[in-house]
Simulated scan of single mutants.
Amino acid sequence: MTDQTIYSLFKQGSKTYFYSSFFFPKKVKEEVFILYSFLRKADDYVDAIPQDADGFYSFKDRYEAASKGEITGDVVADSFAELSIKRNFEKNWIESFLNSMEMDITISSYETMDDLKKYLFGSAEVVGLFMASIMGLSKDSYESARYLGRAMQYMNFIRDIEEDVQLGRSYFPQEDLRKHGLESLDYDVVKKSPENFKSFVKDQISTYDKWQHLGEKGYHYIPYRYLIPIKTAADMYCWTGNQIKKDPLAVYEKKIKPSIPQIVTKIAYNSIKLPKSPVPVDSDIKKSSSK
């Protein structure tokens, strides 16, 4: 049974991920909840207003102690440390994630896309790798998993422009802003050049579309039972991008995200329309090997 703290942390985060994840088989779902509670807890410290840097570093210390076998009493850190051993998470993935969270404390903007990609690897691409490991996918899927994680994070950046401005951050290459004649993404600046902003956002959505397409190329590695929640989450991000494309300035008015009924309806649709994949899940492999 999923711990209540872990359950609550995940539920308070992304509704798209939370409700999509319910379609995973029970054991996988429990591991996904542990993963996302760890990601969410670290992120909450650096996104707090005012920012809780001390809380983040204390949480990082607890995880590092848990990773060495210590029972810290922090159910999120302890559970993730156990999961990382069980699923053979590479040490570099976890270090990169924590480093990217620390970058949210020390860095407020990125000059080039290459600079930003260092942050994207730790904050998003490793999430795809964690998920691939939890689902027991072959390493051939890892490149696509990284692109899918990167694409989803980039759509979060687009959707959360106003929120990030309030946090004093910009997650887009500054050279891209200058290309579109924008000094910043503050609304006072944007409202003076709305067409420039619309053009800027459409370019960022094109970047998202490219990465999303590369991520989708890995769908054939994912068993049908696991693909339903993965594709549902991706479909909801595509929906968000399409809504923003219609009215880019809407990101300053509200957070554009699908409703719970939309997510559930898409899950039902995908469960019917997706072809049954020949790729076995872990439990199928175990059953086969025990015969």
Rank of each mutant, 00 (worst) to 15 (best):
S199W: 08
L274A: 03
S271Y: 15
R169K: 14
N156Q: 02
N270L: 03
D3Q: 10
T16Q: 04
E175G: 02
L120F: 08
L137N: 00
G73Y: 06
L177D: 04
T16E: 00
T2A: 07
P280M: 01
P275D: 09
S14L: 06
K68W: 06
S123N: 09
F18M: 01
L129D: 07
A233D: 00
Q243E: 14
S37K: 09
K192G: 03
I263A: 02
I260V: 15
A65C: 04
D235F: 12
P173V: 06
E253L: 11
I105F: 08
K287E: 14
Y269D: 11
C238Q: 14
Q51S: 12
S259E: 06
Y57I: 09
D114N: 08
G73R: 03
Y7W: 15
T240R: 08
G69F: 01
M236A: 09
F89Y: 04
M101C: 06
L214R: 13
Y147H: 10
D54K: 12
S206A: 15
Q4Y: 13
D78E: 05
E64C: 11
K276L: 13
N92M: 14
M152R: 07
F56S: 00
S58N: 11
M135E: 04
V201N: 03
N88D: 11
E162K: 12
D176G: 08
I272T: 09
R178Q: 15
L249C: 04
G181P: 08
V28K: 01
G149Q: 03
K257H: 12
V127Q: 02
T112C: 06
V189A: 07
I285P: 00
S170I: 15
K191P: 04
Q262I: 06
F80R: 09
Q51L: 13
I263P: 03
S138W: 01
N92Q: 12
G168P: 09
E70Y: 12
I222T: 02
E30Y: 07
L274K: 01
F97W: 07
R159V: 12
L167V: 10
Y219C: 02
F24Y: 06
S271A: 12
Q51I: 13
K86H: 13
K86P: 08
L274G: 00
Y208I: 10
D282K: 14
L116H: 02
A42H: 05
H180A: 06
F18R: 04
L274V: 01
D186E: 15
Y45K: 04
L227M: 07
E70S: 10
Y110Q: 04
A65S: 12
S84R: 05
E82K: 15
D247E: 14
S141C: 08
P223Y: 02
V279I: 14
R225A: 11
D43E: 08
P261F: 05
I34W: 07
V264L: 14
Y17I: 15
N156W: 05
F200G: 00
A233T: 03
K91L: 13
K210C: 05
L148H: 04
E253V: 10
Q51V: 13
D284K: 01
T5M: 10
D247C: 10
F172N: 03
K245N: 12
F200M: 05
A66Q: 02
R87K: 15
E162Y: 11
S184L: 03
S290D: 11
A234H: 00
F130W: 04
V32Y: 02
T265G: 14
K286V: 13
I285Q: 01
E143F: 14
F59W: 01
Y7G: 07
S58W: 12
S199Y: 11
V28D: 08
